[in-house]
Design a protein around this nucleic acid. Structure first.
Lengths: 341, 341
DNA sequence: TCCGTACATGCAATCGATTGCGCACAAATC
DNA sequence: GATTTGTGCGCAATCGATTGCATGTACGGA
C-alpha cells in the first residue's frame, strides 16, 4: 500500500530545479517556454505520474468542466439515451457529466438544480418534470450566467434554448396511419397538457382527425399519468362506459402496454378489432405480441444537439439573450399492433 | 439580466467590517465566535444569497463530496435502481454522484475510472463490465487510498469490499421451482462464466438439477451475450438441433424475451409446452404475455448497502485492508410463464 | 495594581494551478 | 558601441475557504 500520492507541479519543479510557473506553462504549451524545458517537464510529469488537480484548475479558472443534467428519471430508454448522446459529445471536449433525477417531483427538481449550482457546474441541461409549475429555480440559473438548455420537456415562458422533436407532426402521421388502416374511432391517451409534448401530440392527433373529416369525440380523449396502470384504467373506463373505439393512440408506451394487457383480458383481438400505437420506442414495444407501433424520439441526436447548444451558449451567449430552438424529426415505427390490412 | 453574482465570505466580511476568517468560523459554528457575530453573519449570508464555493472547499479540504459510479449502462432497470438507492443515501450526507457508463467495454471502463480520478471524487462504486480482464485501473484507485466498492458484478482477485446478491441461491430456487412444475429438460442460457454472477447462477441451476437427480445435459447450456437477439438465436439452435427441452432458465430477462418471441413464432405454447424464467425483474417482464417469471435483485437495498460500505471505508479503512462482503437475498417472482399446474 | 485566563477576532499560510509583470541575457538593428 | 527586440523564466498575486498561531481586551483573583 503506497501513500496517497499527490504529485503536483511543484514536485516536477523541484525535480528539475525550476519554478511551478514554468512547469505550468510548459504543460500548457506556452510559446515562451523553450522546447527543451517542455520536453523535460513532460517527461518528468510522466515519470512521477502527475495528474493535474482538476479542482485547483477549476478554482483558478472558474470552470469546473462539469455539466449537470436533470431528467425525470434515467430509467427510461429515451432519457438514458439522450444522456448517452450528451455524454459522448461533451466527453470529447473534456467535460464530465453529473446526472440527477427529479422523479417528476417539483421539490426534488429544485433541489437537484441547486445541488448542481453548488457543485459549480459549467452548464445545466434539463428535461422538466411533470409536476413543475414554478420556474424560479431555472431563472436563477440564467441570472448566474450559467448556460441552460431544455430538451424534450421544455417551457416557453422562459427565454431558454431548447431541443425538441416535432411531436405534433409525429402524432399527426401516426394518427393518419391509423386512419389509413381503416380505424375511425380513435381514442387518445394523454397526460397533463400543460406539458408541451403532450399538448403537441394531442394537437397532431386532432389535426389528422380534422383533415380526414372525422368528428372529434372528447370522450375518447383520456388524460392520466400514463403509466402502465393508468393505461389499464383508461381502457377499462372506455369499456365500462361502452364507448365504441377501434384504435388507441397513446402518448406514452407505458400507457399503451397497459391498454393492451386489459384488452387481452377481454379477448379483444389486436390489431383486427382494435389498433394500438404508442410513443417513445421503449425497447419493450418490440417484445410484446403483437409488437407495438410507436415513435422513435431520436434520442441520441437529441443529446448531441443539446450538447452542441450548450457549447454554443457558453461561447457566445451565456445569458441567453437570443434563445434558439432546434426541432428534430422523429421516426414513426409501424409494427403489427396497428396493421390490419 | 444581473451580473454573474459570485458572493464570497469576503463580501460578508466587508459588509460587517470583520475578516473572512471570522465569517468562515461563524458559518462553521466555531465555539470561539460570539453568538452575536454568528447571528449577524448568518443573516448577512442569507441576505446576499451566499453559497459556499464547493470547489474552493474541496481544494482546501481535499474532499470533493463527489462520488463516482461506473456501471455497464444506466439503461437497465437494475442498474438505474441501484444508482437511485446510492443517490438517495449519499445525498442525505451532502454527497453528489457522478454516473458514468462503461457500456461493457474494457477501454471505456478504464477511461471512466481515470476520469473519475481526475475529477477527484471521494469514492468510486463499480459494477464491472463484461469485457474487463485486467484490473490495474482498480488497483490504482486502491493505491490512491480512495474508497472503492464493487456491487453485483464483482471480482474476487482484488481486495475490494463488495455488495452482491445470492445469485446461486436464487438460481437454485428458480430451477427447483421449474422442476416442481414438472419440467425436466431445462435449458440454461448464460453469459461469460468468468463473470461472478453468471458463474453463480449456473451453479445454482446445476445444484437444483443434481439435487433432484436430473442428469446434466451440457448441450442444454448455451452461452451468449444474452441480449434479445442472442435469446432468439439460442432457442433457434436448440430447435434446429432437435434438442428436446421443456423449459428455459435464462440468466437475463432479455435472453428469455428473445426466446419467447421465437417460440411463439413456432406456436409453442407457454407455459404448457415450454416453461420460461428469466433474471433481473426488468419492467417488461410484466408486460409480456404470458408474464415472465424472474428474479428481483433488490436493487434499491443494494444501492443503500453500497453507499453504507463507502462511508464505512472512508471513515475506517480507505486502503481496504479488510475487505467486507455483503450478500443480499434476492426475491423470486413467479408468474405465468412457468406455471403449468 | 499586577498577572493569569478566557474570550473574540485578526493575520497569514495553505490547498494546486494559472498568469500579468518584470528581469536578465542574447541576438539583431542602426 | 548603443539601442531595440526577443527569449526564457521567476516572482507574486489570485481563485475562495480554512485554520494554526498570535493579538488584544476584559475580567477575576491575589
Amino acid at each position: 500500500m503506497k501513500k496517497k500520492s499527490k504529485t503536483t507541479i511543484h514536485d516536477i519543479a523541484n525535480k528539475l530545479g525550476i519554478t511551478a510557473s514554468t512547469v505550468s506553462r510548459a504543460l500548457n504549451n506556452h510559446p515562451r517556454i523553450s522546447e527543451n524545458t517542455k520536453k523535460l517537464v513532460m517527461e518528468t510529469a510522466k515519470e512521477i505520474n502527475y495528474k493535474p488537480n482538476q479542482i485547483a484548475v477549476a478554482l483558478r479558472n472558474g470552470r469546473s468542466k462539469l455539466i449537470g443534467i436533470t431528467v425525470p428519471t434515467v430509467n427510461r430508454n429515451f432519457f438514458s439515451s439522450v444522456v448517452r448522446g450528451i455524454e459522448a459529445f461533451v466527453n470529447k471536449r473534456g467535460y464530465k457529466v453529473i446526472i440527477s433525477q427529479s422523479y417528476d417531483d417539483y421539490e426534488k427538481e429544485k433541489e437537484t438544480i441547486n445541488a448542481l449550482l453548488d457543485a459549480r457546474v459549467d452548464g445545466i441541461m434539463v428535461s422538466i418534470g411533470k409536476q413543475t409549475k414554478d420556474l424560479s429555480h431555472f431563472q436563477s440559473v440564467i441570472n448566474k450566467g450559467i448556460p441552460l438548455v431544455f430538451f424534450d420537456r421544455v417551457n416557453h415562458e422562459l427565454p431558454v434554448s431548447q431541443v425538441v422533436i416535432n411531436d405534433r407532426k409525429a402524432a399527426y402521421q401516426l394518427t393518419k396511419h391509423l386512419i389509413q388502416q381503416g380505424y375511425r374511432k380513435i381514442a387518445h391517451f394523454t397526460s397533463a397538457t400543460k406539458i408541451n409534448i403532450y399538448a403537441e401530440r394531442l394537437q397532431g392527433y386532432l389535426d389528422a382527425l380534422t383533415e380526414h373529416g372525422i368528428a372529434i369525440n372528447p370522450d375518447l380523449i383520456m388524460e392520466s399519468n400514463m403509466q402502465l396502470e393508468d393505461g389499464k384504467e383508461c381502457v377499462q373506463r372506455l369499456l365500462d362506459k361502452g364507448m365504441g373505439f377501434d384504435a388507441i393512440f397513446s402518448s406514452s408506451d407505458y400507457g399503451i402496454v397497459g391498454a393492451m394487457q386489459t384488452l387481452r383480458k377481454y379477448n379483444v383481438r389486436i390489431p383486427q378489432e382494435v389498433g394500438l400505437a404508442g410513443f417513445g420506442n421503449e425497447p419493450f414495444t418490440e417484445f410484446t405480441s403483437p409488437a407495438l407501433t410507436t415513435v422513435d424520439q431520436v434520442s441520441i441526436p437529441m443529446g448531441e444537439e443539446t450538447a452542441k447548444m450548450f457549447f454554443d451558449l457558453m461561447e457566445n451567449d451565456p445569458y441567453q439573450k437570443y434563445p434558439k430552438k432546434i426541432v428534430l424529426e422523429p421516426r414513426i415505427i409501424i409494427r403489427e399492433s396497428s396493421l390490419r390490412q
